[in-house]
Nucleic acid binder design. Sequence first.
DNA 1: GATGAATTGTTACGTTATTTCCTAACGAGA
DNA 2: TCTCGTTAGGAAATAACGTAACAATTCATC
Lengths: 141, 141
Amino acid sequence: MPDPHSTDPAFSGLTKNQSLVLETIAKARRPIGAYEILRELAPRGIRSPVQIYRAVNSLIQCGIVHKVESINAFVRCTDAHPHHGQTTILAICDDCGTVVEHHDETVDRRLVAWAKQEALEVNAVTIELKVRCANCSALAP
Amino acid sequence: MPDPHSTDPAFSGLTKNQSLVLETIAKARRPIGAYEILRELAPRGIRSPVQIYRAVNSLIQCGIVHKVESINAFVRCTDAHPHHGQTTILAICDDCGTVVEHHDETVDRRLVAWAKQEALEVNAVTIELKVRCANCSALAP
DNA sequence: GATGAATTGTTACGTTATTTCCTAACGAGA
DNA sequence: TCTCGTTAGGAAATAACGTAACAATTCATC
C-alpha cells in the first residue's frame, strides 16, 4: 500500500488503473461518479465498471480519495497533511459541487464516546454537509 | 402534511401508498432498499419504483423515516420524541443491520459554527457510523 | 355537473454497484 | 521444477438505485 499522502503526481505505488482513475478524479476538481470516470477513461482502454470500483476502493483505503455518500461520487482528498484516525467532514455545494474538507476533534471525541457507551465498535464514520457555498450565494442571492 | 410523530399505527394523514411503504419499512426493523420495498408491495398493487420513491420522500420530509446514505436504504425513525432542527446520528451494524439513533447538540453546534465561519449555508447534514453492535460482537468475537 | 389541483399510475430510461467467473503474473517454499 | 497462495486485471451479466415525462384518476370546491 503506497503512502497515503505522497506528493503529486508521482503516486509511485499505484497500479496503472489506480493511477488513471486517480488522475481523472483529481482533474475533475469536484465529485465525479464512477460511470463518468468510466466514460472518461474508455479511450484509454478501461471498459468495465468493476475496474473503476476496484481502483476507487483502493484509493479510498489509501486515504487519497473520499467517497461522497450523499451523492455517490468521488473526490480527491485535499488535505495538506494526514489526519490519522480523524473523521473527514465534507461540505458539498449543491450548486457548484465544490467540496471543502474539515476536521474536528471535539466532534470525533463525542461520537467515539457515544459509541463506546453503546458498546459499538466503530468501523467508519461519515459526516457530510450539503451546503450552498459562499461563491454561489453571492452569484445568485 | 401529517404530524411528524403521530402515534403508531394510525398515521391518519398518510395517503394509501405512504401507509403501505411506511408499514413495510417499519416491519423490516432494519434498513430496507427501495426495490425490496417494491417486491414486498407488488402483491398489494404497487408496480413501479416511482411510487416507492414518492412515498419514501414524503415520509422522510415528515421525519417518520430516515435515509441511510451510506447504504442507500431506509429505516423507520425510532425517536421517541421530535428533535426539531437536530441532526440525527445513525449507527448501522455492518453485520446485522440494526440501527441506533442518537442526537448530540455539541456536535450540531460545532458543525454549524464551522459552516458559518466558512460562509456555508447548510441545507442538510448526514452523520452515519458503520459499526459492529454489541450483540454481534458477542456472538462472533 | 364543471373545473382545477393534487395524487397516482405507467412507461421508459439512465445511473450506480455487485456478482460471478476467468486469466495472468509473481514470489515462497517443498 | 512444481505447486500454492496472493494480487491484479478483465468480461459479462444482472441487481439495485433513481428520475423524467406524460396520462389517468381522485377529490374538494364552486
